[in-house]
Structures are given as structure tokens and as C-alpha cells.
């Protein structure tokens, strides 16, 4: 009765753990903790990341670089007409 009062109020997932009913599989510690031959560890190749998970060096290329002249970095391309006279 106590559970019934609590359960509907919390999340919609009706999932609860049954602590009471005996269960052969769950009550046997060895079964729960059973190991298998399959490796549970990362394969060696995936252990280490070559780049240390770092970003490449950012050259900070941006639109301003594309829009300016090499020789006159202060003048933007729109000054084209001005230069042409």
C-alpha cells in the first residue's frame, strides 16, 4: 500500500524493483557476477588517442582574411571602386 501511494506520483515509468519475491537468478551472486570469456576491456587499439583528443592548431582563418588585400590589409575589398577611382 505504501508503494502504491508513492509510485503514481513519480515518473511515468512504472518500473520498480521487486525486492520481495525470491528469484533464483538474482539471488545467486555468482550468477549476477558471472564472468565470460569475452573481453570486457577496450581493445588495445582504442585505448589511446593519437592526437590526445586535442583540436588541431587553429589558424583562425576568417572572412576578413578573404575579404582584405594582402598588401593593404586595412583596405577591404569593397574599397575596390575607390581604388579604381
Amino acid at each position: 500500500a505504501r508503494e502504491a501511494a508513492v509510485r503514481p506520483r513519480k515518473e511515468k515509468t512504472p518500473f520498480t524493483i521487486d525486492f520481495v519475491t525470491p528469484d533464483e537468478n538474482l539471488d545467486d551472486t555468482d550468477k549476477i557476477f558471472a564472468t565470460s570469456n569475452a573481453s570486457v576491456s577496450l581493445p588495445k587499439t582504442q585505448i589511446r588517442n593519437k592526437t590526445r583528443n586535442l583540436l588541431p592548431d587553429d589558424k583562425h582563418f576568417n572572412s576578413r582574411q578573404l575579404l582584405r588585400l594582402f598588401l593593404k590589409p586595412k583596405a577591404m575589398l569593397r574599397s575596390k571602386k575607390m581604388i579604381k577611382g
Partner: peptide, 10 residues
């Protein structure tokens, strides 16, 4: 058991 049952709710 009862305590665990209650503990899972809140």
C-alpha cells in the same frame, strides 16, 4: 526488504 522497497520510491 521493506526498507529497500520504500527507498526506491523517493
Amino acid at each position: 526488504q521493506n526498507i529497500f522497497v520504500s527507498a526506491q520510491g523517493t
